[in-house]
């Protein structure tokens, strides 16, 4: 969409790579996935891992008001002015895919108010396996599933699992307790995703988000290159 197109008036129209003043905008990464798979915990861990080296902000898309934003505020992963909640009217997938206007406003307001920013993480409200982000909103998307949701999820696929730029299989520490076969999940993911990367992580372990943080760093390097 309008990547090289630049408007004189306030607020870019869609995914324009430059802000109205001509400067490059922040990289936007979306995190989606089913309810309870650990999206908010991953966002919190990423903020802790990256906040010293990058200027960061987070947009949450809660189903019921500001729960996820409140969690991030309580955990104090970022100063409160760097966290914004978007309300989604019972349709979290609409707000990240079919009608992204509220989310675009939120990321632009963050850049205006606390910028310049290097990275904005846009967390979707917990939804189903079909929810994906519009390319008009984010530059890359991460899909988060967990081992407790069933080890057949990678095999079942769906747009999130199959096409996300990164698939995270979360809560690997629980695998023995819920009878999930990590090897099978990794192999199934490889089958549906081809060369697209997969990270198996447990945020309970020391530096559990390191691999995902490294992937984000690579993305940032490519974006600013």
């Amino acid at each position: 969409m309008h990547l090289d197109h630049h408007l004189e008036s306030p607020a870019a129209v869609s995914a324009d790579a430059r802000r109205p003043d001509g400067s490059r905008r922040a990289l936007r990464i979306g995190l989606g996935g089913p309810v309870g798979s650990g999206k908010t915990a991953t966002v919190a861990a990423l903020c802790r891992a990256l906040r010293e080296e990058l200027s960061l902000a987070v947009v949450t898309n809660d189903i019921y008001t500001r729960e996820d934003a409140e969690f991030l505020l309580r955990e104090a992963v970022l100063p409160p002015e760097r966290i914004t909640a978007v309300e989604t009217g019972a349709c979290p997938h609409t707000a990240i895919r079919d009608d992204i206007s509220a989310n675009l406003e939120a990321v632009e307001d963050l850049e205006d108010e606390v910028g310049p920013l290097d990275l904005v993480l846009v967390e979707s409200g917990g939804d189903n396996l079909t929810a994906t982000f519009s390319r008009g909103l984010v530059d890359a998307q991460v899909f988060v599933i967990d081992v407790a949701g069933g080890d057949d999820i990678p095999r079942k696929g769906g747009p999130g699992v199959a096409t996300a730029d990164l698939l995270i299989v979360n809560k690997t520490d629980l695998a023995p307790y819920v009878g999930s076969d990590l090897g099978r999940m990794a192999a199934d993911a490889k089958t549906v995703r081809g060369e697209l990367p997969v990270v198996l992580q447990s945020l309970r372990s020391e530096d559990g988000v390191r691999e995902v943080a490294d992937w984000v760093r690579e993305r940032i390097a490519a974006w600013t290159a």
């Binding site: 008036s9 306030p10 607020a11 129209v13 869609s14 206007s101 675009l104 406003e105």
Partner: peptide, 28 residues
């Protein structure tokens, strides 16, 4: 006002027009 701003974004992308740009500048 929030809905107006969101509609403005969609409208400018759909029907680009200097008049819409002018209204957008008037109400950032």
């Amino acid at each position: 006002r929030r809905l107006g701003r969101q509609l403005m974004r969609a409208a400018r992308a759909t029907w680009p027009s200097p008049e819409l740009d002018a209204v957008a500048s008037l109400f950032p």
